[in-house]
């Protein structure tokens, strides 16, 4: 469904994304992880047309979408959310979601009806007429999800929808994401919260300093030496495994 090949982007002398290739199969729920500044959000911005890649190709649904406008990419069925939530402040939750619904519904009434439906799905059904600006962080994350879903996407890119939520809120949102996948939408997550990645995704890629350093099922990736070092610093993998050998009971 999504084929990214050797995509590259530099900002000045910094290679933010350096030759990243990955492919997402239809109906899967996969993730891209990596420490802060690894280039995850830039990667999303590149494949959704917010930034123009310096090199590489992006194919979505068999079509080359390199250099296409974000609106055309959304029209084609790939929609992203934002790590820093971006509600239309001053508009109600219903109106916010309707903006997404308008991509497929020309009539205002249809869009508003669709918005109410989607809100119900993500658990915002009781807050439809609230000002979006007055939602809690967890509520805004749900709103991000809802707006993206309202566009009837084939593939959604969730940029850290779980970051900033407390454990109980994370427990509430995880089933929402699962339900999205179960409804037939393919999902690519960017995530910080490892617990979520472990629970949710079937396959994961690890980005560090703009390059992919590992990929595989989440459990295998979490045990990967390069991944541990990327997150925790050089030498940590050795220390952790030494510790595990010393205290097998806790491992």
């Amino acid at each position: 469904m999504l084929e990214v090949d050797g995509i590259t982007k530099s900002f000045g002398g910094l290679k933010a994304v350096d030759g990243v290739s990955l492919s997402v199969k239809q109906g899967s729920l996969v993730s891209l992880i990596g420490p802060n500044g690894a280039g995850k959000t830039t990667f999303f911005a590149l494949i959704t047309g917010f930034h123009r890649p310096d090199g590489g190709t992006v194919q979505f649904d068999g079509k080359n979408i390199m250099g296409a406008k974000p609106s055309d990419i959304a029209q084609a069925g790939m929609v992203r959310t934002f790590q820093i939530v971006q509600p239309f402040a001053g508009q109600t939750v219903r109106e916010n979601i309707a903006v997404g619904a308008h991509l497929r519904h020309a009539s205002r009434r249809d869009a508003l009806d669709r918005a109410a439906e989607v809100a119900e799905k993500v658990g915002l059904g009781d807050r439809l007429d609230m000002d979006a600006a007055s939602l809690t962080v967890a509520g805004r994350k749900r709103l991000e999800v809802a707006r993206a879903l309202a566009t009837d996407p084939k593939l959604v890119l969730f940029d850290e929808v779980l970051a900033g939520l407390n454990p109980s809120e994370i427990r509430d949102v995880i089933p929402v994401i699962r339900a999205v996948r179960d409804s037939g939408v393919t999902i690519l997550l960017i995530e910080h919260v490892m617990q979520a990645v472990m629970q949710l995704s079937e396959y994961t890629w690890v980005l560090n300093q703009g390059r992919l350093i590992a990929e595989g099922p989440p459990r295998a990736v979490a045990a990967d030496k390069a991944v541990i070092e990327a997150y925790l610093g050089p030498g940590m993998a050795a220390r952790l495994s030494a510790q595990a050998k010393r205290e097998p009971a806790h491992a």
Binding site: K69, S71, F82, Q86, P87, F88, G100, L103, R147, A148
Partner: peptide, 13 residues
């Protein structure tokens, strides 16, 4: 209200 969010939702800004 938010150009980037609108763009992401398929609006041709």
């Amino acid at each position: 209200d938010n150009e980037d969010a609108a763009r992401a939702l398929g609006v041709d800004v």
